[in-house]
Amino acid sequence: MGSAAVAILVAMFAFCFLGPLVYHTDQVHVFFKFANLSPGAGHPLGTDADGDDELGRVMVGGQASLEVGIAAGLLAAFLGSLWGAASGYFGGVTDAVMMRIVDAGIAIPTIVVLLLIVTIYRPTEPVLVLVIAATSWLSTARLVRAEALALRTREYVQMVRVMGGASPRAVLRHIAPNALGTIAVNVSFQIGNAILILATLSYLGLGVQFPAVDWGNMIFSAVQTISSGYWWQIVSPGVAIMLVVVAFTMLGDALRDGLKSKSRGR
């Protein structure tokens, strides 16, 4: 399962970043003559409402989706790991306060907070990375905290305390690295999730802004003319999103199963 996931990811990266080098298309100009052509010779996946080639557009659109998704997923996992490791290590009142903040954050649907923030700030790629990470780190924090609670009673962490080591050092040098397995699994899920969130925001018209292109806003444009039945304009980017998210989810599952059997073997 893990190798299938890696194969899909390598293929999709090559498709999005190397594809345009081989398959040249003009995604800037508008060609009304060629608008909404169904798949056929010259345009294997048809064209969109601006007459741009759909296959080339899925390649280019994937670049923004993958870049923002991976950056936001990594950032979210990093922030969540620090928060969770600190919360679990300190325990007591600090832990209770830190975890109630996480509970409150999780209670509010992510997409609603995101809508509010991008209503106020103009969504550029860096802003999107920051806000997606700022709303997704909570689940990682919960997981890593549970791991840290188990680790803090271990001898080598106790030793740091006895030897008078500073707390931040114990968290960074001993708790976080030993929770790395859990974190690695989570990174994979976080990236898949961030790609879904970005696509959803763009679909709602509040993510990547025209003339920039990503898979979500391709579907946003296509839905405007959904009653005309131009299925290829929805199915092509839709399949691309699904393949990438399936791959990251499968990779996370495979890593988790591997981790489980390793700890059982011990």
């Binding site: 839905v223 009653s227 929805i234 839709g238 998210v245």
Partner: peptide, 28 residues
């Protein structure tokens, strides 16, 4: 895996395309 990874707006638009606009079984 497929339904877990398919955003609601993709799934919904595909359903509209084929069962609503195409087959006309349901409203769009």
């Amino acid at each position: 895996y497929v339904f877990y990874s398919m955003p609601a707006f993709v799934l919904g638009s595909v359903l509209i395309l084929f069962l609503g606009v195409g087959a006309r079984w349901f409203g769009a």
